[in-house]
Write a protein that binds this DNA or RNA. Sequence first.
DNA 1: AAATAATCTACTAAATCGATAGGATAAAAG
DNA 2: CTTTTATCCTATCGATTTAGTAGATTATTT
Lengths: 136, 136
Amino acid sequence: MLSKKTKYGLKALAYLASQRDNNPVQIAEIAKQENISQKFLESILLTLRKTGFLGSKKGKGGGYYLIKKPSEILMTDVMRILEGPIAMVPCVSLNFYEKCSDCPDENACSVNKLMLQVRDANLEVYRNNTLADILV
Amino acid sequence: MLSKKTKYGLKALAYLASQRDNNPVQIAEIAKQENISQKFLESILLTLRKTGFLGSKKGKGGGYYLIKKPSEILMTDVMRILEGPIAMVPCVSLNFYEKCSDCPDENACSVNKLMLQVRDANLEVYRNNTLADILV
DNA sequence: AAATAATCTACTAAATCGATAGGATAAAAG
DNA sequence: CTTTTATCCTATCGATTTAGTAGATTATTT
């Protein structure tokens, strides 16, 4: 299951990307328009800022804005920040690799064999989609 | 993340599929060979039996065995039973569809647009793999 | 009758998720 | 310089899920 965090984060990014200009948009506006708990969204936008996707401005006329162009924001990067590893098991993860404690040999593991394919299929999708591509 | 339940369930199925004959194999043997908590595996094999993947036999010489040929056991079916919906959000699920409460229009939703692609990519993998295909 | 192995019910510790509360900080307006 | 605005930060919380355990029951074989 996709976490609400990821879901809301994606919606917020899409909302910002579909603005006419790139002026700061307040959390309150995004939360209201996208039906998201404002406080929860706050923490999500904060992580997106700390990880280099968003810029922010305090005080009147402040808010969040995209730092890069939507077409330069890859879904692989967004998903890894919001949802975590793309792989379903650590032993097939490119960025978060870890050996399974219960598995003596990855090459002799059926789960590994299946999940490698799943990982590749998902990567393919995320690599082929930028924020610009998922706008409606 | 793949749950341990699914991981262990797949390993158990693979273990049974790689037996020379289709004689019953005891829980204890599978648990030991695959480094799985026996009691936990017990409950997993029980659901696999109740959902028509396994047969069982009590008493001496008893255990679990595959009901169908490995090449006839589709990963789509196994995954849906063990892990639940293949889709990451209910609004793109084929078998477990549900409308998102926060989303007025699915066709205008970026998350929906991305997750549809993810679902299709995953389905493609699971449909193209039977239990026989993931044996090592 | 004894041994064997699956079946069933109930419980629990730990982790995660989604959300909330409340104050601190920075910027702009007056 | 004070007030207002809006982000920033820390801490906490209830509910749910996950992974596993305990123990008794039932069915089959020897």
